[in-house]
Amino acid sequence: MSMSIQGKTAIVTGGCRGIGLAIAQHFVDCGANVMIADRDEAALEQAVSDCDEGNGKVRKFSGNICEKLAMANLLSATLDSFDRIDILVNAHRFVEASDPLDTDPGVLEEMLRQNMISGLRLSQMVAKRMIKQAEGQTDLVQAGAIVNLSTLAASRPVPQMLGYSIACAAQEQATRGLALSLAPHRIRVNGVRFSSVMSHELKCALKEDDSLRSQIVAGTPLGRIASADDVAETAQYLVSEGARFVTGQIISIDGGRSLADPVTAQGL
């Protein structure tokens, strides 16, 4: 089984820190070209510096990828830099607590826009390019692969984060729907659902309450908090030829936690 992504070109959104950065770094280490997209210019500069090491395989795009123009510019920048797009990883996430009885529709709409709609629209845009690139190729050649990130909140609602839970569930359904729609074009779409990962958000939560660490470990059958590399390696598998007959699947990276432990907002 080949997990090689050598020479492939990937866009990774939300790639300037945490899980997104780990995926970008891992892809570069595996020989891929990577366009890191995010809004924080300073963090992007540091991310490129950390990932590139002078090999010219990393570029950055700064912009609000929830906006259609920014998506189009991201696509153009990637093609200008690397001539093609083979992989898209929608790693951008926006997490915010919300009152389940809040009557302000703007909270839910923003959760959906940030965590599902923007990724769906970018996937549609990138898929059109992948289809064009694949014209004239044999039916056995993969045209492209898309990976969407979600969390355990998609299947086990967190009341104090209702909007985010709904957005994660919507993201997973979008993954399945796109997988079915794009399969005839030889584009595979899969998802990675994770629980507690040592991400930027969790590190901040642990600084405020270190007892959270022992709670998470105790509730995880494999007895540790996942690293961002655990997610990155799963993403690599899903975009590689090793997963060439896998589409529409949501792979859980949770150490068995979904089997045994109630979800908490801090652990997402």
Rank of each mutant, 00 (worst) to 15 (best):
S4M: 09
Q6E: 15
Q6A: 15
V12E: 03
Q25W: 02
F27G: 07
V28H: 04
N33P: 00
N33S: 12
D40V: 08
A42W: 01
Q46S: 14
D52P: 05
F61G: 10
C66P: 01
K68H: 13
L69W: 00
M71N: 12
A72C: 08
L74C: 10
S76M: 14
A77G: 01
R84W: 05
I87L: 04
F94Y: 15
F94I: 00
V95G: 00
V95N: 06
D99P: 07
E110F: 10
L120I: 01
L122T: 06
Q124L: 12
Q124E: 12
K132M: 12
G136I: 10
T138M: 08
V141S: 15
A143G: 09
I146F: 08
N148D: 05
A153Q: 02
A153N: 02
A154K: 00
S155G: 15
R156P: 00
V158W: 01
G163E: 08
S165M: 07
S165D: 07
A169C: 09
R176M: 10
R188Q: 06
V189L: 00
R193K: 12
F194T: 03
V197S: 04
S199N: 09
E201W: 10
L202W: 03
L206Y: 09
E208S: 14
S214K: 14
V217E: 14
T220V: 13
V239S: 04
T247Q: 03
T247F: 00
T247D: 00
I250A: 08
S252F: 07
L259I: 09
L259C: 13
A265N: 02
L268V: 09
